[in-house]
Amino acid sequence: MPHLIIVAEADFNPADLLEQLHVASPSVGAVASFVGVVRGVADHSIEALYIEHYPGMTEAEISRIVDQATQRWDIETVQVYHRVGRLALGERIVWVAVSAPHRGDSFAACEFIMDYLKTRATFWKKECFQESERWVEQCQSDLDKASDWQP
């Protein structure tokens, strides 16, 4: 089954996406999935996130990340769905799911793809508060997590 890479404003339905992965081959024995949602910020009343991307490059970069994962682990199919635009508190932002013969590969590839999405894919988040907004700064811990995957 081909990999699924979608960048869109519309929400996604995790159950539908999982169902698509289940149509997979008899060699699939594990599916790991991750959902990221808009979280509040401790000292502010965040109302929404605005997510900008670079159409064309974003999809190309996700595709390169997925290719790296398929070379590194024994996995079957990858789904990456990343939303853009204005997302309210609690809304889903991102979906990553990986099917594989065994759970170890699906867990590892799913986390690898998420860590690389955060540090390589061309998305930018802006936090929107009631009377102000600010661009999110890149997090050192995210960079550290991604570099931990380097062989």
């Binding site: 990221g36 991307h53 970069e61 930018w124 890149q138």
Partner: peptide, 26 residues
């Protein structure tokens, strides 16, 4: 042209260059 590059990467006529802050998706 939609791939990460560096300050000394070659650029030629017809290329699309993008400049942006560190990414914060996911």
């Amino acid at each position: 042209n939609h791939a990460h590059a560096h300050a000394d990467s070659p650029v030629q006529d017809g290329d699309e260059v993008a400049i942006f802050p560190p990414v914060t998706g996911g």
